[in-house]
């Protein structure tokens, strides 16, 4: 599903940059759910940005969904990104698009038919409980509502790999529970899921194998 071998990464280039990850090796199979743990600044977001193809690792080998990322052409990376869904820590909703258009964006970029898009958007927004806010702008929503929109956008195109960075930090307990239930359902359906968090309570409540980072190093990879 995805494999990292001896991967290092420095923000702002290899030499002058801040070392965010050192010598990470990982092997995660299809349909697995993994927590990604570690204190603030440990490198969780950095690892997710390598997996979501937002940055290139400075060294090592990265293979995602069978594609060797370091050698791949730009167009195959673009196609690969369409199979990876990401919930970013800062949501990254576009403020000048409506909630509907934000959630529809991945499908529009895949040139899906508009009636199919409308159907999918209504279904997923109903699921996250925001079907009445489709015409709102993201900034008119609360933090938790924005986070649910970001989650809806990440799962709407049924990604094979789902990456979520602190997806519950703005949610209440009930919403977080619903989200965890969805993640487990998606994993059963074959989606590989990595969820970064430093919320110990939720990890205790939903135990699952975890990757633990500290200062950019892997401290544990346990199941």
């Amino acid at each position: 599903m995805f494999r990292l071998h001896d991967v290092s990464y420095a923000h702002g280039g290899n030499r002058a940059g801040v070392a965010a990850l050192s010598h990470i090796s990982l092997d995660v199979a299809q349909g697995e759910f993994r927590w990604l743990l570690g204190p603030s600044g440990a490198g969780k977001s950095s690892l997710l940005s390598i997996l979501s193809l937002e940055v290139q690792a400075s060294a090592g080998m990265v293979e995602i969904l069978g594609v060797p990322v370091m050698q791949a052409r730009r167009s195959s990376l673009a196609r690969l990104r369409r199979r990876i869904g990401t919930v970013w820590q800062d949501f990254r909703l576009l403020p000048d698009l409506s909630v509907f258009d934000n959630v529809a964006l991945p499908l529009r970029l895949q040139h899906r038919a508009e009636d199919e898009i409308a159907h999918e958007v209504h279904a997923i927004m109903k699921w996250v409980g925001l079907e009445s806010r489709l015409d709102a702008r993201p900034l008119q929503l609360s933090g938790g509502e924005q986070q649910r929109v970001a989650i809806a956008r990440a799962v709407i195109y049924r990604p094979a790999l789902l990456l979520a960075d602190e997806p519950t930090n703005a949610l209440d307990e009930r919403q977080a529970g619903r989200l965890m239930a969805m993640f487990h359902r998606l994993a059963e359906l074959g989606t590989t899921i990595v969820v970064a968090t430093h919320n110990d309570a939720i990890v205790e409540k939903y135990p699952a194998p975890a990757i633990e980072l500290a200062h950019g190093h892997m401290v544990r990879d346990y199941r």
Binding site: R74, S75, A78, R81, R92, L94, L105, P106, L109, Q110
Partner: peptide, 13 residues
């Protein structure tokens, strides 16, 4: 920002 986002959602160059 919008370009970076749609790029990471898989938009081709």
């Amino acid at each position: 920002q919008a370009i970076a986002l749609i790029h990471s959602l898989g938009a081709m160059d």
